[in-house]
Amino acid sequence: MDHPARLKAQDISLAFAKNTPVLRDLSVDIPDGKITVIIGPNACGKSTLLRSLARLQPTDTGEIKLDGTSIRRQNSRAVARQLAILPQNPTAPEGLSVRDLVSRGRTPYQSALRQYGHDDASKIDEALAMTGMSHNAHRPIDALSGGQRQRAWIAMTLAQDTEILLLDEPTTFLDLPHQMELLKLVQQLNTDTGRTVAMVLHDINLAARFAHHIIALKDGRVLVEGTPDEVITTATMAEIFDLSCTIIADPVSGTPHVIPT
């Protein structure tokens, strides 16, 4: 694929325990300005790949490169201004307000002696507005519903004001309407601000609907990658998930839709 990509994984391998590799010599590009979705069966290394891309998980071999330089050799604060990740199951202390949480996203621009820069307030307001959380800004996180809480966390990563946004299973624990709402928000962020988004999703049909680019993993390797039409085929579904299915065009979006048989 020849699309420009600021963020790349080059031949990364990783094993949590000996003889049980999670990622094997894996190389992927995260195309700039697009929505990339990583799919694959449980324990195929989806989350590990995303966490490695965000320098949360060191790799055994290979390199993650951001703008051509190894992410490990760059200043972590500088990286945090280029790349934000929403990890799985993030936690916040009891009583922390939404606005306080979102303001934590400004950390890479702050320090102990510069706790609140001049554009911090406007960036925080902007992030709250983009996620539709402005009216909830003063409520404690623990008082919010699952969907609202996830929006608050996304607002925090938006306040980080990065061009690249990584989301690790952002729809987990959400019901279908809230999953749709959240993914539409992600789509809107991508269209309105041109942010590069890469996320892990469990639901193939949602992945097909919202992704420009899909990376399908199996056993720590890239099985196939490309547009939803290229990746979501009966052949790949059989190979990745051992799933026999027919594929129809989604009547709403025209994207491939998997119907298990």
């Binding site: 972590s76 604060r77 945090a80 916040a92």
Partner: peptide, 24 residues
């Protein structure tokens, strides 16, 4: 400790969040 309180105010989030915000 006053200098550390800036970091402590963020360390009360998860480890992943702290790293992702660029704190050592």
């Amino acid at each position: 400790t006053l200098w550390l309180s800036f970091a402590l105010n963020r360390l009360n989030l998860s480890d992943d969040t702290v790293t992702s915000l660029g704190l050592p």
